[in-house]
Design a protein around this nucleic acid. Sequence first.
DNA 1: ACCTGAACACCGTTCAAGT
DNA 2: ACCTGAACACCGTTCAAGT
Lengths: 238, 238
Amino acid sequence: MPIIAPRSRRERPAKPSLSRDGIIETAVALMREEGLERVTMRRLAAALDTGPSSLYVYVRNTAELHAAVLDELLGSVGLKAGVTSEGWDNVVVRVLGSYTGILIEHPALARSALVTRPSGPNYLALVERLLSLLREGGVADPQSAWGVDLLLLFATSIALEHGTRGLTLDDGEDEEALAEALRQADATGYPTIAALGDDLLSGTPEARFEWHVRVLLAGIALTARPAREAGNAGPGLP
Amino acid sequence: MPIIAPRSRRERPAKPSLSRDGIIETAVALMREEGLERVTMRRLAAALDTGPSSLYVYVRNTAELHAAVLDELLGSVGLKAGVTSEGWDNVVVRVLGSYTGILIEHPALARSALVTRPSGPNYLALVERLLSLLREGGVADPQSAWGVDLLLLFATSIALEHGTRGLTLDDGEDEEALAEALRQADATGYPTIAALGDDLLSGTPEARFEWHVRVLLAGIALTARPAREAGNAGPGLP
DNA sequence: ACCTGAACACCGTTCAAGT
DNA sequence: ACCTGAACACCGTTCAAGT
């Protein structure tokens, strides 16, 4: 029996010792190969040639792991998209579109972004870019401060909404069910739905996205913040 | 050995035979008792005194089950909230607030509403109510048609966002991480964030919610739909 | 037709024990 | 300190077999 270590038939060089960065790097690679839904603690551990429990030394739980992966991905949001040639509002549409596009490919990350507030450097860079664009557009600071949240909430939700559709088995079946239900809605029970008819579902997703963003920008620019009331200071959940 | 059937010591009367309605009814009851996250196929089957596979005769999968539960819950959205005394926009704020409030208690349903388009009768009634309020407010029909989606997307997202927070183990820890990150953001790297400072996180959730809805209403009322282009007809995903 | 037991192929997280 | 094997307590879905 040779004394050579019994596990040297892997191609991986020497089995690198674990580290938080290494774990996240591997998670990102695994995600690009197989999608985030396959980046489970168990699978990630297998990719790192160890057991799942080992990961818990470096990562608190799955949510934290996903948050780290998210910020990594956000590095590729196109923040520079056409700075001056077009109007500031068109740039906002593009920047948010880039953000949404990335998340659409990874709906589980969109969910993560919605559920645990991201705070990584790349997310902050996105917030900074949007705030500076709003300023450029002459939006008052208090409205920008509360509005940027709304813009990002919208973009994230759209990604979660569209990203998950079609990923499910029954491709767009619920879409059709809604279309059918809207058409069936007769004038007695649902008069306004009946009156608007097909226009409720008209337009390409891109056209709707763009119009939605313009709605948000117009509303943010024009809606004054409420007068300060007592206890209007901290975050605090309901 | 007596021939008496060996399972008559349950209190449940005679074991009712399964039906889709009965299954959903039990699912709703189970959800009210233990929360939706515990309404799994296996647990629901156990509550119905059968095996999980039996449910698949009546319900295609978990997503369909959740959709049915969602519409059931939506029956209690307060659609009548203060019809005329206050302005139509305040009524929109209340109706959406009622919808969001219900979903906040069941974040998994909010996720379901975001991911598979609801089309049940109670959801349609909510759409109808919002459309009629927008009309009452003098909003042009094409803008209402595309705007109602945005209102519901927003309300659903807020519910998912707030509902899941605090449900996680580390209560509001990410919130704090974001606050810290924003404060740390120095003027060189993130000048606009630094300039706006604490106002980025100011306000109660209720105040922000109300302002957000007003932003949406103002934007919807004032933003014209894009000129019709080629291929602007059907839904169709990106 | 309706129902079921049992299996398949997984999960996240913990914890006592090892090095 | 870092790492691990093994276990705990679960999942959704399928399918051959029964009634």
